[in-house]
Computed example of a mutant assay.
Amino acid sequence: MGAFRAFSVLLVAFASFGESLANLNGSTTDFDSFRKKFHRSYEVNSEEFSRRQIYFQKATVRHLYLNSFSTESQSATYGINQFADLSQMEFRDVYLRAESSSRAPGFAGLTRTGLPARFDWRDKGVVAPVQNQLACGSCWAFSTVGAVQSVRAMGGLQLEQLSVQQVLDCSWENQGCNGGSPSRALAWLKQTRVKLVRASEYPYKAETGACHFFSQSHEGVAVKNFTLYSFSGQEEAMMGQLVTFCPLAAVVDAVSWQDYLGGVIQHHCSSQWSNHAVLVVGYDTTGDIPYWIVQNSWGTAWGDQGYVYVKIGGNICGIADSVAAVFL
């Protein structure tokens, strides 16, 4: 919570810039365009309409502040997306529901040398398309399942969407749409040897339901083991883990991601409050700003076709604090 408060304090300070809301992009015309683009159905002149327009106007102030740090060509940009009419509290309460189950031990292994300057598991055809968790705090389940289905495909099998809903409903140490932890979900999969079935057999509903059990003879994917480390201060070693093993499930501080449009995030993340789970699928060190390539679960309309880029080094957004690799 400290990171959220600190971020809010910075935004309040920025309000002293003095622009009136009427002069910003939060005009009635822009808000009408936003509502049409994102299919908002609240009625004009209703209480909800007024409240959402105020949130939208506040978002335009926030974007000016966030973009004031974007001084380099690759820097992140912030602006209007599908979350622009949510308050920061609403966004946090619905979409930032992941947590680290415990402090991950620091990585004590060897750092791999001779790493490629750029590496992306998507190039190997083992990363499934971006999904959309909708208004359900299920990012932890998407991150977990994303890692499992990638490792399965790396074994030579056809890349298939596995059931996020099965993890959401059945991982009893987590809280379904109310939040959870990738490491707890992986521990549950390892301990129970539950087989993840295809998403077509157990489709996603964006709400927590009753667990549907399958027989042990039913075809599915079981997790044998996983590792969980902190690579804080050791992101080169994290690069080595990514290249050597698989896409990595990570828990990050995504408070400022509400407004992200594209580019490399280098600021605004304190890494003091882990709240969102993602899948790290690659990295690129060939440009001026080295960055992680991160698949999110907010649909392809968000970010760069559903992806976000986070600067390598400095543990930006806490991306190296809690990182899991899966073994089948």
Rank of each mutant, 00 (worst) to 15 (best):
L189N: 02
L189K: 07
L189Q: 09
K190A: 12
K190F: 00
Q191D: 14
Q191P: 04
T192V: 02
T192C: 01
T192M: 01
T192A: 03
R193C: 03
R193V: 03
V194G: 04
V194N: 09
K195W: 00
K195R: 14
K195T: 01
L196Y: 04
L196S: 05
L196R: 14
V197K: 04
V197Q: 04
R198F: 09
R198L: 15
R198T: 15
R198H: 14
A199D: 10
A199F: 00
S200P: 01
S200V: 04
E201F: 14
Y202I: 01
Y202F: 03
Y202L: 11
Y202V: 10
P203Q: 05
P203M: 10
P203W: 08
P203K: 07
Y204H: 00
K205Q: 15
K205I: 09
K205N: 04
A206T: 09
A206M: 03
E207G: 10
E207R: 15
E207H: 13
E207A: 09
T208I: 01
T208C: 07
G209T: 00
G209N: 09
C211I: 00
C211D: 08
C211N: 09
H212E: 11
H212F: 03
F214L: 11
F214W: 08
F214E: 11
S215I: 02
S215D: 15
Q216K: 14
Q216M: 15
Q216I: 02
S217Q: 11
S217C: 09
S217N: 13
H218I: 13
H218Y: 14
H218D: 14
H218G: 08
E219P: 15
E219Y: 12
E219K: 13
E219H: 11
E219M: 10
G220V: 15
G220D: 03
G220Q: 02
G220W: 05
V221Y: 08
V221M: 02
V221N: 06
A222E: 06
A222L: 01
A222P: 15
A222S: 15
V223A: 10
V223G: 12
N225S: 12
N225W: 02
N225D: 13
N225E: 08
